[in-house]
């Protein structure tokens, strides 16, 4: 995640203010208005991480069980609530479940000088 003023270009989608996502929280976004979140952002140990809302286990399977609910109760893992696969919030590596060893697809994020969070298209 970079911090730059150069974020305001067509290559970047504005998501929300970066400080709206608190520590160990997750939030989904539907920037293309598909009716379902295509990506989600997690703040873990202070850093924001963006991931495609697509479990590598079943092609493109959405992962939350309720809107914005991508984490386990302890807030230590991203969980796919289709078949229980668990992923590290910072690396996207699956550490338990049906796709162990595979990774989530990362989304490049940037926070501009005004604190706005953008995702790379």
């Amino acid at each position: 995640m970079a911090t730059t003023r150069e974020a305001r270009s067509p290559r970047w989608l504005r998501l929300c203010r970066a400080d709206e996502i608190g520590e160990a929280q997750s939030r989904g976004f539907d920037p293309d208005d598909e009716g379902q979140d295509s990506l989600f952002v997690v703040r873990w140990q202070g850093q924001l991480h963006g991931w495609r809302n697509a479990c590598p286990h079943v092609g493109g399977a959405p992962m939350a069980w309720r809107r914005d609910a991508y984490l386990n109760a302890e807030r230590t893992r991203i969980v796919c609530h289709a078949h229980g696969a668990e992923f590290m919030p910072d690396t996207g590596l699956c550490v338990q479940g049906p796709c162990r060893g595979e990774r989530l697809i990362d989304i490049e994020l940037v926070v501009d000088a005004d604190g706005e969070l953008f995702a790379k298209k």
């Binding site: 939350a64 069980w65 796919c80 609530h81 289709a82 229980g84």
Partner: peptide, 9 residues
């Protein structure tokens, strides 16, 4: 089918 907090659909 829906996702669930039970590790399954």
């Amino acid at each position: 089918y829906f996702n669930s907090p039970f590790g399954c659909h």
